[in-house]
Simulated scan of single mutants.
Amino acid sequence: MKQSKLLVLVGVFLLSLGSFSKAQALLNTSEIVLQIGEDGNPPRNSEGSFIQLKDGRILFAYSKFEGGSGDHASGVIAGRYSEDGGNTWTGKDEVIISNEGGMNVMSVSFLRLIDGSIALFYARKNSLDDCIPYMRFSTDEAKTWSDPFPVITDKKGYFVLNNDRVIQLPGGRLLAPVSLHKTAGVDFRMRGSIFCYYSDDNGKTWHSGMEMPNKNRVVVQEPGVVLLENGKILMWLRTDRGVQYLSKSEDQGLTWEEVYPSDIASPRAPASLKRIPETGDLMLIWNNNKSLVKETAAYRTPLTAAISKDEGKSWTHLKVLEDDPDGFFCYTAISFIGSEVLLAYMAAEREKLKEKIPLVLRKLSLDEFYD
């Protein structure tokens, strides 16, 4: 860590808008429980998700790129297990999903379904014209998986479903927020067309909701969704406007209001947001880069956590997870284990992204986020 640069960045990065409290101290960095890919072999390790198994173990699966560090390099879905609540992890990867795509398989979302089975979602990427989220089931606690089937069948193109993103509503509806960026014969667009695909039969069939309105043609990407206490669905999106953008649905993801800016300062990078089971509050993890330095405005650092007690209207208890000014931190997976929190995220050096992208797993007390 470069101390002089850090002192400068602390002064310019910490967000101080009216709906946020002043950022607090750096969280305990000693609670790293696993690092994958520190030696650059494999060259990229990213976009994971946790699932707690009924025998007490935890399975963490992630995108393991064996053919390079880029989004389109060859890769598989690999997994590690913990038998002690996330304190220690198995030393070798188990291949969960082999490379069944023309390019790769990547970007994992686990979900414990209401019927007790486990759903596994991932992207099968064949080409820049063909990237579709697929789903598998397990009824034996991740020992075996069903045959894969596509979530999207009514459209063809390059869809992005971020890791750790699929949710199930209390009535059983599954929601998979996706961003469409390319179809055959059309150039790749940074501005995604945003949809929520939904299933009302536990994932057997899927249907498309309406596209999210975006009359100002904001570059929106990588949507995520969370259920609010009033029954509405909140969607957040990465943009190039210096903040996260938001939209809401009042009909369980069928239609969306016009997308609008939040005051969550952010580069064009994904945020992660989940409800904390023990407290009922929302936890947000993102790159809080409210910066006065234009040259650093796009950097994916620092990595910050915040808590909302009012359904996302305001954020308090800001905590810095990672503050290396040369770092690149993103695609966080969040899992709550009682009064503890497991996090997994890319933790690379910005100047070495073509060489290696390691993955870090951390375990922290929930109390640390509230102190």
Rank of each mutant, 00 (worst) to 15 (best):
E322Y: 03
L282G: 01
P223I: 06
R238T: 03
P223V: 07
L284G: 01
N288E: 01
P302R: 02
P302C: 00
V225H: 01
L254C: 14
P261R: 03
G312Q: 08
T301Y: 09
P261W: 03
E322D: 12
D263Y: 10
V320R: 02
L234W: 00
D324H: 04
E295R: 09
R300A: 01
S266C: 15
N289A: 13
K290R: 15
I233L: 15
Y260I: 12
R300L: 01
Y299P: 14
S291T: 14
G280P: 08
R275S: 11
K215R: 00
N287L: 02
V225W: 03
Q252C: 04
E257F: 04
E278C: 06
R268Y: 09
Q244C: 05
A305D: 01
I264A: 04
A271K: 07
A271Y: 02
T255A: 10
K274N: 14
M283T: 00
D240Y: 03
L303M: 03
T304A: 05
A269D: 08
Y260A: 15
N230Q: 11
G327F: 05
R268I: 06
L246M: 14
N288G: 00
S266P: 15
S291A: 04
L318K: 09
L292C: 13
G224N: 14
F328P: 11
W236L: 13
S314E: 12
P267R: 00
S249D: 01
N216F: 13
N230H: 04
D240L: 10
F328S: 15
L234F: 00
W286A: 07
N287V: 06
P277T: 05
R300I: 05
M235K: 04
K232P: 02
L227T: 09
N287H: 02
D324S: 07
L237K: 06
P261A: 08
W256C: 10
V320Y: 07
R268W: 04
A265V: 13
E311T: 08
S266N: 15
A265P: 01
L246R: 12
Y260N: 14
G231E: 04
Q221G: 05
A265Q: 10
E250F: 05
W286V: 10
V243H: 09
L246H: 11
V220F: 08
S272W: 04
V320P: 05
D281Y: 06
T301M: 09
D251V: 05
R275A: 10
E322A: 12
K274I: 11
T279I: 08
K313P: 15
M235A: 13
T255C: 12
E250S: 08
L234H: 02
V219I: 10
T239V: 09
M283P: 00
K313D: 15
S272G: 11
I233M: 13
T239L: 00
N287Q: 07
S308W: 05
P277G: 01
L254Y: 13
K248E: 15
K232E: 04
E258D: 13
N216A: 14
G312L: 02
V259Y: 05
L284T: 06
I276Y: 08
T296D: 07
L227K: 07
L303W: 02
A306N: 06
T304D: 03
M283V: 05
Q221S: 09
A306E: 09
L273H: 01
K215V: 03
I276E: 09
L318A: 08
S249V: 02
D326C: 04
N216H: 11
Y299D: 15
E257M: 01
A271N: 03
L303D: 03
